[in-house]
Simulated assay, not measured.
Amino acid sequence: MDNSLDCTYGLDNLYQPTYHGREPRRFGRDGSPSQRRDDAIIRAAACAPWKPPRPPKRSENTATCTSRRRRCRPKGTLLPLVSGIDVINECTSRGLVAGAFNTTNIETTMGIVAAIEKVGVPTFIQVAPTNAALSGFEYIYDMVSRRLAECDVPVALHLDHGKSLDAVRDALAADFTSIMIDYSEYDYDENVRVSKIARELTPSSLALEAELGSIGGKEDDVAPEFAAHTDPQQAAEFVAATGCDMLAVSVGNQHGYVPNAAIDFELLAAVRDASPVPLVIHGGSGLPDEQLAQLHEYNVVKVNVASDLRNAMIRSFGEAYNANPKEASLIRVSTDAVAAITHVVEKRIRTLNPSVA
């Protein structure tokens, strides 16, 4: 067998060197430039028998590869992840609101993506550092991107409530495509200072969300020391100083399930008029449907939903146990949980976007 390297390229095997007499191998997970480079080096070395290349080691610099990855893929290839900038632009151009759904495990991820595929609205899938404590950010990336490899709807992987610059760095190193820095519990100047650093860390090709005003309620059983509404008079200055692409606001919304949580639409309108970037509403699980359905009129581009999904999964397992305390078919109960999560996510996406059939 002739093992000499042939560097011809065909449309069906874009960027792939082939060996004479040997079936060309397709590239691994993402076909990124760094992976193609490593693959070519390994395969060409000493004409050794071909072995699957190791995935390239991730670093902070790999976070910038998202847009390049899209350009390097052959036309018609499905896009596993896009930048949060792409989701923002797609939604604002079409008058849509992106749901931002928190995942923790495979069941939640499967349920979220199944709903996204049914409705077709660009979306954020996100995780907070508190919920990545068990798996780490890289596991979340691998799980989400693997499932999205079969999805043709634009989806970004977002860091939710990055409370430290270390969390921002870790998410970027894991190839997240959208970042939130949340220093809203600190005074205005400190919030600006740290948010500016987060902008410096986050490539301009990726989206950065920052928060002005402190949202109340509990996020993963953690409540802020104080809650404060967003001051419209600070909005333009804050956005200009931090360079954020989305502004999370506190306008009566609360994290988790808070009785009588309600949007102050007069305040939201004032912030909308003052902010040069689209707005983000946290605490979507606790808001009434009629309010969620109005948010597209207020330049809201992203609405976070977490508690609804977690409750759907926990409820599915609880109901299965109550029905049969000796239930041992984990796959059946997990499948029921996926279906319950899909139902919740689809309902939320449609509620946020009344124009979607």
Rank of each mutant, 00 (worst) to 15 (best):
S67F: 04
S67T: 14
R54Q: 11
A44C: 14
C47I: 04
R68F: 05
I42D: 04
R22D: 10
A48R: 02
A46G: 04
G28V: 05
R71A: 11
R26D: 04
A45W: 01
T64K: 03
P33M: 05
L14Q: 06
R69C: 08
R69G: 08
R25M: 14
R54D: 11
S67E: 15
I42C: 03
R25T: 12
A45Q: 02
P24M: 09
Y15A: 15
S34E: 13
A48Y: 00
R54C: 09
R29S: 12
K57F: 00
H20V: 15
R29L: 13
P24E: 01
P24R: 07
P56W: 02
Y15P: 09
P55A: 04
N13L: 12
Y15S: 12
G31L: 13
W50K: 09
R26N: 07
P52N: 06
Q35C: 03
R54P: 01
W50H: 08
T18Y: 06
C47W: 04
S32W: 04
T66S: 00
D30V: 03
A48G: 02
R25L: 14
E23V: 12
R70L: 10
T66C: 03
R43T: 10
I41V: 15
N13C: 13
S59D: 14
R68D: 07
A46D: 07
R54M: 10
G21N: 15
P53S: 11
R54H: 06
K51A: 13
P52K: 09
Q16R: 14
G28E: 01
A63W: 00
Q35V: 02
P17M: 13
R71I: 09
Q35D: 05
F27T: 09
P33R: 06
R68Q: 06
A46T: 04
A40T: 13
P52F: 03
A40S: 11
I41F: 13
T64P: 00
N13R: 12
I42P: 00
P24K: 06
S32V: 01
R69A: 08
P56K: 02
R54L: 15
Q35L: 05
P53N: 06
R71N: 04
R43H: 12
Q16V: 15
D30Q: 05
C47D: 14
S67N: 12
A44H: 08
C47H: 11
N61M: 10
R43G: 08
W50S: 07
G31N: 11
K51I: 14
D30K: 02
D39P: 02
D39L: 09
A44I: 09
T64G: 01
T66L: 00
K57S: 09
S34M: 12
R25I: 14
T64Y: 00
P33K: 05
P33V: 04
A44T: 11
C65F: 00
Y15T: 14
R22P: 07
Y15H: 11
R71W: 07
P33F: 00
P55I: 01
E23N: 08
P49L: 03
L14T: 12
R68Y: 03
T18G: 09
P17R: 05
R26L: 15
N61P: 01
C47S: 11
P49E: 03
R71T: 10
G31A: 12
A63C: 12
T62I: 08
T66V: 02
R26T: 12
Y19T: 15
T66W: 00
P55S: 04
G31M: 11
P49D: 04
G28Y: 00
R26V: 14
